[in-house]
Simulated scan of single mutants.
Amino acid sequence: MIAKKVLLVGNFGVGKTSLIRRFVLNEFSEEYISTIGVRVSSKVVTYENQEIKLLIWDVAGTSGNEKIPKAYFLGASAAMFVFDVSRKETYLNINHHLASVKELSGLQNITIVGNKKDLLSEEELQTVINTVSVKIDLITSAKENDHVEDAFLKLTAQAIK
């Protein structure tokens, strides 16, 4: 079995920890508990007939200006940038955030995920999709378990490339 370090990054409160809890434990909680530093979870997934142990690094969210320690990014095989579709400030400067993640991690392809789709109507969601300046890979809802597994499978595919 191979192990791959993958990162979840993005502003505070976008649902990174909720996505991980939904994926690893199939649980969801309305309680917001801020991640301090980094929290590592793991889950074994089967992808293209091989077992891969994902070491999922839940990197504490920022409000944009704080520096994240480079050590968190070392050795990462893939990264998922998560934003909150209901909070404009989490995706307006997405290019700047992605450039920072790419620089720190050395990764060129980052999986882009908009979370909390349960908070918007289809029309509002389409407006967000049209506003975001980069291609969004998936729109998820950790609460409703919508496309969460797909997001992590996409991350797994990135990790083993």
Rank of each mutant, 00 (worst) to 15 (best):
Q50K: 15
K67G: 00
T90P: 07
S29E: 15
L155Q: 11
S42R: 14
L107E: 02
H147L: 08
E149R: 08
V85M: 12
F12C: 10
K43H: 04
E144C: 08
R87P: 04
L107H: 02
N11I: 02
I68H: 00
E149L: 07
V132C: 06
L55R: 12
E31H: 12
E103M: 07
V128R: 08
I139F: 15
V40M: 12
K43S: 01
V101G: 01
R22E: 01
E27I: 11
E27G: 02
E66A: 08
F73G: 00
E30D: 15
G64T: 03
W57V: 12
A76E: 01
I136L: 06
E48R: 14
S100P: 00
I20H: 12
L125R: 05
E123Y: 08
I136N: 05
L8C: 10
E103F: 08
N49Y: 05
V59Y: 04
E144D: 15
I52N: 05
P69C: 02
S86W: 05
Y47F: 15
L54T: 12
T111A: 14
E27W: 08
T156D: 10
N49D: 13
Q50C: 07
E122H: 01
E30T: 13
S63V: 05
T62G: 11
S141C: 13
F73M: 02
V148P: 09
A78H: 01
Q126I: 00
S77Y: 03
D84E: 11
L125H: 03
F23Q: 02
S41A: 07
D150W: 05
S100E: 10
I112C: 05
K53N: 15
D137E: 07
L153D: 04
E103L: 09
Q158P: 03
V82C: 12
F81G: 01
T35W: 03
I112D: 09
F12W: 03
K88E: 13
A79I: 03
L25Q: 14
I139Y: 11
L120M: 07
K5C: 11
A3I: 12
D146I: 04
E30S: 15
Y72R: 02
I112Y: 09
A159D: 03
K117P: 00
N109K: 15
I136R: 05
I20R: 08
K135R: 12
T111R: 07
E122F: 03
S29I: 13
L54G: 13
S100Y: 09
L25E: 15
A3V: 14
E30I: 02
F83Y: 13
F28V: 06
F12I: 07
T17W: 12
V14T: 15
S141Q: 09
G106N: 00
Y91E: 04
E66N: 02
N145A: 15
S77C: 05
V128P: 11
Y32I: 10
N49L: 09
E123P: 00
K5D: 09
K53G: 09
V132K: 05
K154R: 14
L104R: 04
M80C: 14
V6H: 09
I33G: 04
I36W: 00
I110K: 02
K161Q: 14
N109T: 12
L119E: 14
E30P: 06
A159E: 03
T62H: 07
V132F: 08
N115I: 08
D84V: 11
L138R: 12
F12R: 14
L19G: 10
L119G: 06
L155H: 13
Y32V: 10
F81T: 04
Y32H: 13
S42G: 14
K135A: 10
N49V: 03
D58E: 10
I160W: 05
S141N: 09
I110G: 04
S41L: 11
